[in-house]
Design a protein around this nucleic acid. Sequence first.
DNA 1: CGAATTGAGTTTTTT
DNA 2: ACTCAATTCG
Length: 697
Amino acid sequence: MASHSELNPQQQEAVLYTNGPLLLLAGAGSGKTRVITHKFVHLVKNKKLKPEQILTVTFTNKAAEEMKSRISQLLKTDTHGLWIGTFHSQCNRILRKEIKALDYSPDFCIYDEDDQCNLMRQILREFRMYEALYKGVVARISNLKAHLVSPERFVASGDSYGFDEKLARIYARYQAELKKANALDLDDLIMLTVRLFEEKPRILTKYQDMFSYILVDEFQDTNVAQYRLIKLLAERDRNICVVGDDDQSIYKFRGANVGNIYDFERDFPDARIIKLEQNYRSTQNILDVSGAVISRNEMRKQKRLWTERGCGEKVYCTVLHNEEDEAKYIARMIKDIYLKGNYKYRDFAVLYRLNILSRPIEEALRAEGIPYKVVGGLAFYQRKEIKDMLAYLRLAINPRDNVSLRRIINVPSRGIGTATITKIENEAKKNSISLFESIKRIISGDVITASLRTSLQEFVDFIEELRKMKDARAEEVLRFVLEKTSYMDGLEEERMENIEELISSARDISLREFLDKTSLFTNLDDLPSSDVVSLMTIHTAKGLEFPVVFITGLEEGILPYFKATEVPEDICEERRLFYVAMTRAKDMLFMSTVKLRRLYSKVQEQEISRFLSDVPKKCTHWIDKTITKSEKKVELVKEVKKVDVPYPAGCRVRHPVWGIGVVRDCYGEGDDRKVSVNFQTVGLKRLAIKFANLERL
DNA sequence: CGAATTGAGTTTTTT
DNA sequence: ACTCAATTCG
């Protein structure tokens, strides 16, 4: 509701209250982003702060970009250099400048989960422990770091973090390896910044002086370490505003701590608390349904969302036979609504708990000719070919990056096999040097064959050449790597395209900046800009809104997810997840559940999600599509006849009066056959083909 | 050393 | 279903 620029009284209060700590409890769709941007502008225009004196922390990069663009519009200034970004990118920025104080080199590289896993497997192998545990171990360590538990503290902490001697040894080793490689993992970015501030008070003071106001968005999804960081920066001047909604906390698995919201009041007892309860997004029916579901959670801050919009349409709950039917049902529903002409494809979103659930939906949409895009999913920068390229680039800046070196030393193959790699590792260990140094030593030694020496020397020369390019543009270095390694030779089409995309994203950016971007951003592209239906997980949908929302797979084992049904707290989070999904909807909400679902290549009998029984009947329309049997055969016949379509959806036609238009659908039989066309001149029209006199273009 | 085949394990959410 | 790792063979 950005149409009128006035703020409601609570929003106004939240914007104007700038002296002292403020906890803003912002319900779903309550115009939170508007408040934050207005507050930013208020601080600059009326409180005379410089924009760069305000530290604004967002949850995702996308949110940061959005905020920057709004602020640059409102203030008409360049947002370059402002402190608006995620915790990770802000910490990265601070550490690049200050990390020398912690005895790291500012050239450090950032290890993502994949790199962490590679390193961990290496360590476990060396410790002769079961290698397949690496994922779990990485997760445990990540969790410890999110709680600011260093290896030393872990040892000293006794039982309090589920102490385990083996884990302690692994953790210490892991951390040592990171340091050797001059690498930080994503959790280190936060943990080390906290350490920096705690151990170097002068540096802390510098940043306290720098930031006159601190704004934290999505506060319910911050972890202990992040909150500590904020507290360190804010405790002196106490000019801080945190914005959050405990009902929308859905990242506990990643260490997020809803408790931060409750702790904030304890840590800042003079904090003003303002609730934003007027919802500008959804209809009353949607609010009633979602409100009824979330109110079943105990331990939450009571909020009562209300709207000036009417009841709106009822919420649809549909039971279907299997996932195929569910997908078809959704596809047809989208088409029906679309054809009525009030909504474009971009107004629809299909949400699910698990990425795999997108498959049947995609198929059905394709079959109906509905354009769609899967948002999120497999992160672009995680793809193998991309990670290979990035490994080369990283070595250009940081030759000590052992994980990257191991990754590409024989990719593409240079005749350096496992035996040689083991030799390199042993040599490195013996002399406590990096793998790269170790290779150089082996070359100058005399224990290898001439051909092996040649390939090792070529590799070293190549990396040295790359190192000379470390101040070049990223694109240039990438092209150089591709050319020198012939990486593209015989590569699959799709992977080549990905590399092309990587190159185009590397334009006009320094190598260092590019590497930071690739480590801290998960995806290249954001929401679809063309007119397509969006498919995404509920997590990805956080912070977004769509006029028409479908939530699929409302079954036990999926939502709530079976891995999260043991602990009551996990169930609460699953419920919140459902709540987030429902509150994405503006006008219409469809929820569906299925009796049989093919999952992990097994057909399973599904039970309706327990959450659906909390949905109030009076706001909903229940449809059971599993009862009608005969219907199916009828549909089959129809489908066969649909094959020859004179004007398929999407084709362009000319009408003698209305001019050129795009066909949206074609339906009916024989002389009754009709077509609906969206004309540039008059909009959507339905015509009988027999009389319309259309010319196909 | 590298390629190909077989076999086994794993399937959440993301900075 | 699909990916990834180990094993085996050339």
